[in-house]
Design a protein around this nucleic acid. Structure first.
Length: 204
DNA sequence: TGCCTGATTGCCT
DNA sequence: GGCAATCAGGCAA
C-alpha cells in the first residue's frame, strides 16, 4: 500500500525543531522522466533576522521572497554562478527562516539520478546541496512550490520500512559559510555514510 | 557603474 | 589540497 504524505502542520514547528525533524524523512519527486526518492540525512537551519549567514538576514528581496512566504514551501536559489540549492521554508509568513537540504540517501530512482548527474557512484549522487538538487530533478522552477503537492512531497519517518523510525540525529556547525560559522545549526544522522561531511564530534 | 563574494562542485596537480 | 568556473546580489564610489 502507498505511504501517506507528511501532514502540512509538520512545517509549522520552530525552525530548529524542523531542521532536526526533517532528518529521516523522505523527499519524493514525481517528474515527467520518472520518480526519485531520497531520505534526508543532513540539514542546516537558517534563522533569518537572527542569523548573519541567512539570505533573509537583511530583509526581503526579490531573490529571497520565498523564505518570507508560508512554511512548507521549497526555496530554491542560485549560487556560485552555476549551482542551485533547495530549502524547506519554515516559520510563519513574514518571517524569513528556512532549512537547507544538504544531503540525501538515495532510495528510489537511482538510474534516473545517475543519468541526471552523469555519475554512477551512489555515495556521490546526493552528497551536497547542489548535487541533490540535480539528482532529484529540481531547479529554479520549483522555487515556491509547496512540499505537500501531488508531485513533490515528503513522507514521514518510518513510512518506508527499511529505515529506523527514530534515527539518531546529532548536531554540528554549518558548512561553507564565513559569518556565524560557529553556530551549531547543522543536523545529521549519526554514522550515515551519505552525509556531506561527518560530524566534528565535539557537539551532541 | 564597478568590484567582490558566495548556504559549491569537480577537475587538476 | 588547490583552484577555476561563472553570475547575481550587495555595497562602495
Amino acid at each position: 500500500m502507498e505511504p501517506h504524505p507528511i501532514d502540512p502542520a509538520f512545517f509549522e514547528q520552530p525552525t530548529l525543531a524542523l531542521a532536526r525533524a526533517l532528518v529521516g524523512t523522505f523527499l519524493v519527486h514525481d517528474a515527467a522522466e520518472g520518480r526519485t526518492v531520497g531520505r534526508i540525512v543532513e540539514t542546516e537551519a537558517y534563522l533569518g533576522a537572527r542569523d548573519p549567514a541567512a539570505h533573509s538576514y537583511r530583509g526581503p528581496t526579490e531573490r529571497n521572497r520565498t523564505m518570507f512566504g508560508p512554511p512548507g514551501r521549497m526555496y530554491v536559489y542560485f549560487i556560485y554562478g552555476m549551482h542551485h540549492c533547495a530549502n524547506v521554508v519554515s516559520a510563519p509568513e513574514g518571517v524569513g527562516e528556512a532549512v537547507l537540504l544538504r544531503a540525501l540517501e538515495p532510495v528510489e530512482g537511482l538510474e534516473l539520478m545517475i543519468a541526471r548527474r552523469g555519475r554512477a557512484d551512489s555515495r556521490e549522487l546526493c552528497r551536497g546541496p547542489a548535487r541533490l538538487v540535480r539528482a532529484m530533478g529540481l531547479g529554479p522552477a520549483d522555487d515556491g512550490a509547496p512540499l505537500s503537492g501531488p508531485r513533490l512531497y515528503l513522507l514521514p519517518r518510518g513510512a518506508l520500512g527499511a529505515w529506523p523510525r527514530r534515527p539518531r540525529v546529532v548536531c554540528d556547525v554549518r558548512v561553507g559559510i564565513t559569518r556565524a560559522a560557529d553556530l551549531p545549526l547543522r543536523f545529521l544522522e549519526k554514522g550515515n555514510p551519505h552525509v556531506s561531511r561527518p560530524a566534528s564530534g565535539t557537539l551532541a
